[in-house]
Every structure is written in C-alpha cells, then in structure tokens.
Design a protein around this nucleic acid. Structure first.
Length: 568
DNA sequence: GCCGTTTTCGGCCCGACTGTTTTCAGTCG
C-alpha cells in the first residue's frame, strides 16, 4: 500500500463529509489522521504501530485497515456514491462551506457549480432560509471570478507582491509599525494570500486611506479590526490587514504568522497552564491580559526559545526545540558552489561574481557554467572550459581573501552519458551534474541517467535534483528516495537550490537525505551578482527541513572543503 | 471522530465580519 494513497483517501473522506455538512470536528478528525501519517517520516511498512498512533482511532483506523486489506476504503466508496463529484469544486467558492453546500444540495439538489449558477439566476437560492439576496449576488459574482483566479502563488511571486504593498503602507502616517505575516513570513513555497499586521491608533482612518491607495478591486470585509481586500497586482490576490495596538503587535504577529497547527499547539500548551492565547495577548486565569514586547518575549513566557517563523510548521517544532541551536544559519555559510558567468548564460564576469562573493564574506566559491550540450545557455565546450580554468587560476592569484574553484554544471544527456569526458572532469575542482533535457522520459530512464552521473567518481553534486519550477512545472519526477540512497552509497552531495523558483530538493526529501547521512549543499545557482542574495531564502528553507549546520557543506571551512571535496 | 493524571462524556483554538437575523450561524484564517 502506498502511503500517499492512504493520506489522500483520508483527506477525500474528510472532503466528502464536509460536503455533507458533517460536524466539523468529525471532518477534522479525518484530516488530522491524514496529517499524522504525513508528518511521520516512516514508510507504511515501517509503521507497525499505525493503528495506535495518537489521532488515529476506531473510525480512521477502520479506513486504514480497509486500505491495507483490500486496497480500497468502503467508507470512501459509499461517500462517493452519495456525493456527486461535481460538488467538490463548490468548496472553492469563497463564502461557501460544508454547511451551506449541504443545505443547497438538500433543498435544491445543487450538485455542481453550473447547477448553483442556474439556481442563483432563477433566484431560488435567495428564497432559502438563511440565504438572502446579497448572498445570491455574491455567489454569482464569485462563480464568474472562479476561472480567472489563481489560488496559490509561488514564493518568488509573493516577494514581488509584498514589495508592492509595503511602500503603500509606508506612505500612511497613521501606521506606526507593520509587518508581513502569514505563510509568506514562514517562507512557504506557495501562499494563497498576503497577511499584514498593522499598528495604529486610528484603524478607521488607516482603513479608508488604504482603500484609496491600494489597487483593490473588491472589499471582502472592512471593520476596525481588519480589512480584507482583493488586489489587482500582476495577478489577482487577496490581502488581509489586521489593525492592532502597539502592545498587541507581538501576539498578533505570532497569531497571524501561524501555521494553524503551530497555533493550535501553542494554545493547547497555554490551556494546560490555565492561560488562553488570542491574537491580542495571553489571558490569565484571573482575566488579565498579558502583552509582549516581541515574539521572543511571547515564547519566553512559555519557557520556550524563539521559534523562528519558518520553523512554525506542523506543531512538531515544539518537541524539537533542542535541535534549534544546531540548525544551519546564514552566518554559517562560507561559500556558494553553483553560479554562472557571462561565459555561459550568466550576466557577470568571474571577477564580478568573485567580488560579490567577497562582499558576502565568503572564503570560497565555485564557478559552474553550463556545459556544451546546453546550447541555449551557451554551454562551454571542453576547450572553453579548460581556458576558463586557466583564467580562474590567474584571477585567484589576485584575490588573497577568497578562493575561487573551477567547476562546471555538466548536463546529464538524455541517453545517460555525461557531457564531458573523465579527462576533462579530472582537471576540475568541483563537478555538478544536472538534467536540463528530456523531462518527459519515463522514471526508469530518468533514474538511469541520474545513476550514471552518481557512479562517476568525478561528480561531486547533483543540482536541483527534481527539476521542479514551483507553480510552473513539476520536474522530471525522479524516485527521490532511491536517489538519496545512491547519494549515500556513492558519497555524493545533493543540492538545495536556493532560488525561490526551485527550492529543490523539497523539504521532506531534505529531511530524508539528512537522516540517510547525505550531505546537502545550498546554492543560489546565481546568474547575476544580486542573485547571490538568494542564499538567505535557501538557508531559511533548509531550516524548515531541520538541516543541521554540520550536514550543509557550505558551512565547512575552506580547508575542509578542499580536503574532503576538491582533493578527494 | 478523537481524546483523557480535571478522563469514558463533553469539549475540541478563537475571534472578526457578513448577512440574515432580531440574537446568531456560517465562513474564514
């Protein structure tokens, strides 16, 4: 039995139950069971205690047992017969939840978006108790918007969106302080909206000014505690703004940074101490409200160290605070080992890249231009590569404070051969191998290509191991656990590509790699000097995977890098 | 549906806003 199928089955059951208007704690129980399986790093065959895990009980356990025995779930089958599949997309309509969908289905037989649209147009919906004219109009409006609205935005795009909103907030003098919050603040790969916490004494003034200044095409909610709007930026995206006092700021920031699971855990912790956490502070048993100068103080109140936003994930972080100290940090990074110059498709020279790396305080770096197979990127022929090697050796003489190593980002060709011969590779300090072509090959063939690269003793690192571009393409679908196994066997480094377009390997796999003893290199893959700054995103993402400093080769000293990697 | 050192039933995180209501249910985050 495939663990993913099991997780999806539990989630589907939750979804169908939601559509039936079931008690949301019941729905939540199935979601929780799915989550318990998901956060458990073991495979199904390794989980002999699955039915006794906390969060899995009689009902969810029966589903799991069904799947183990028969490969399918009776409960899910029944639900699928009861609930028309067309109802599932109804949940995507803002303002519609399980309760209302169930009512619409029961009263009017609505089983699809199309049916809902018709019913609204015939004014049948507004005739139902609990629904009114405004709701009907809103539903029609939302249905119209559905097709053109995206529901999630990759990190790289969120960076741009946030950068567009912040200057507008800067302009409003009644705002004394603000911060972005939400999943973006947690360095999530994708976010569905923007969240900001705003400190002001005059929320209504700020709200009105914001409505004038922001490119808002719709106001979803506008009160003294929050403003919720739909913005027209490069894409249509919702934004939530919460208005709080200075004293409430830290609590509000923590609350609206989430994650939801993290907040639930924190609230449970508070409750066990007789306290109550809200976005305004921590309420004591006697009703007094404690507020905090900073999030650090907030955590300290619960005898916890500061848990940075990117670590606030599934709630398990509260059990892993003893690991916080050993995590890789930006200040530990001593070099970047994957970058391009004008020799291939980069925008700057070797010297310019070296200067930029020196400014960042690195002790070493590797130039890794593309290889000749990649014509579109002006990949280097063996001759050009060896010329570049000489040039790098010369330039190195000029820089006493940084060591520039010469490397390549060599293509693994569609037939599994490598773009350079061993004699060429032998002369380089550092060899990256990666796939840039024939993504559509069957997994077996992709794996053969990767295997052939990993078996080569000259290859040091596999770059962006899945080839994903977040929000654009999934990559070439390798069998990553197998890849990790090979990396451990052949002693190869796997890359965490720091580009917010890639963040590849994915954090679940990074964690798996670390457990398997595989070393990780965080690289920016910079094609311009300013892209070297993406290292901070890479490190933040690595922290999400709980990567320890020791396991990230960029933290190693120049001597160790030379000894264990270059001269090996 | 799940859970339990305040325990086998009763609560499950909690508050803002909206729309449909005359005091609150539903949705959302």
């Amino acid at each position: 039995m495939n663990k993913k199928v099991m997780i999806q089955t539990l989630e589907k059951i939750a979804l169908y139950m939601e559509l039936l208007g079931e008690n949301h704690f019941k729905v939540g129980a199935f979601r929780k069971a799915a989550n318990v399986l998901e956060v458990d790093p073991r495979s199904l065959t390794e989980m002999d205690d699955i039915l006794t895990l906390k969060g899995i009980g009689k009902g969810t356990g029966a589903v799991i047992q069904d799947l183990m025995d028969k490969g399918e779930s009776d409960l899910l089958n029944e639900l699928q017969e009861t609930v028309p599949a067309g109802m599932i997309p109804l949940l995507e309509i803002p303002g519609l939840g399980g309760k209302r969908i169930a009512k619409l289905h029961e009263a009017l037989g609505i089983d699809s978006i199309e049916a809902l649209k018709e019913a609204c147009e015939k004014n049948e919906v507004s005739a139902l108790p609990g629904f009114g004219k405004k709701t009907e109009e809103k539903l029609l409006h939302e249905i119209g918007q559905l097709a053109e609205r995206k529901t999630s935005f990759p990190l790289w795009q969120m960076v741009k969106f946030v950068a567009e909103v912040e200057p507008i907030l800067d302009e409003i003098e009644e705002i004394s302080k603000y911060s972005v919050a939400g999943s973006f603040r947690r360095t999530k790969e994708q976010s569905s909206d923007m969240d900001f916490i705003i400190v002001t004494d005059t929320p209504s003034v700020v709200r009105e000014k914001m409505l004038k200044l922001l490119p808002a095409i719709e106001t979803i909610a506008a009160g003294d505690a929050k403003l919720s709007v739909t913005l027209e930026l490069e894409e249509i995206i919702d934004a939530d703004f919460r208005f709080v006092t200075d004293a409430q700021f830290a609590s509000a920031l923590h609350h609206f940074t989430g994650s939801k699971e993290h907040n639930v855990k924190m609230r449970q912790l508070a409750k066990s101490r007789g306290e109550k956490i809200s976005e305004y502070g921590v309420e004591q048993e006697d009703g007094t409200m404690l507020t905090f100068e900073s999030e650090e103080d907030f955590f300290a109140h619960f005898n916890l160290p500061f848990i940075q936003p990117n670590l606030r994930q599934d709630g398990r972080e509260l059990d892993r605070i003893d690991e916080l100290d050993g995590l890789v940090a930006l200040s530990d990074i001593r070099g970047d080992f994957h970058m391009h110059t004008t020799a291939s498709d980069g925008g700057y020279s070797i010297r310019e890249m070296a200067d930029a790396c020196r400014t960042r305080g690195y002790s070493h770096m590797v130039i890794t231009d593309h290889s000749h197979y990649l014509k579109v990127a002006n990949g280097l022929t063996p001759e050009r590569l060896l010329d570049q090697l000489k040039e790098i050796r010369e330039i190195n003489e000029e820089y006493p404070d940084i060591e520039i190593f010469s490397g390549t980002e060599m293509d693994i060709l569609p037939d599994g051969t490598l773009d350079f011969d061993d004699e060429v590779l032998d002369q380089l300090d550092f060899v990256i191998a990666s796939i840039h072509s024939s993504f559509n090959q069957p997994q077996e063939q992709i794996m053969e290509r990767l295997h052939s690269a990993m078996k080569n003793p000259h290859v040091d690192l596999i770059a962006h191991p899945t080839g994903r571009l977040i929000g654009k393409r999934d990559g070439y679908n390798p069998d990553v656990p197998q890849l990790i196994e090979w990396a451990a066997k052949y002693g190869k480094i796997l890359e965490l590509n720091a580009s917010p377009h890639r963040l590849d390997l994915d954090k679940e796999y990074l964690e798996m790699a670390q457990q398997a003893g595989v070393k990780i290199s965080i690289n920016t893959d910079a094609h311009a000097t300013e892209q070297l700054e993406l290292m901070s995103i890479g490190v933040e993402y690595a922290q999400k995977a709980w990567l320890k400093k020791e396991n990230v080769v960029n933290t190693w000293s120049l001597d160790r890098f030379k000894q264990e990697i270059v001269d090996k």
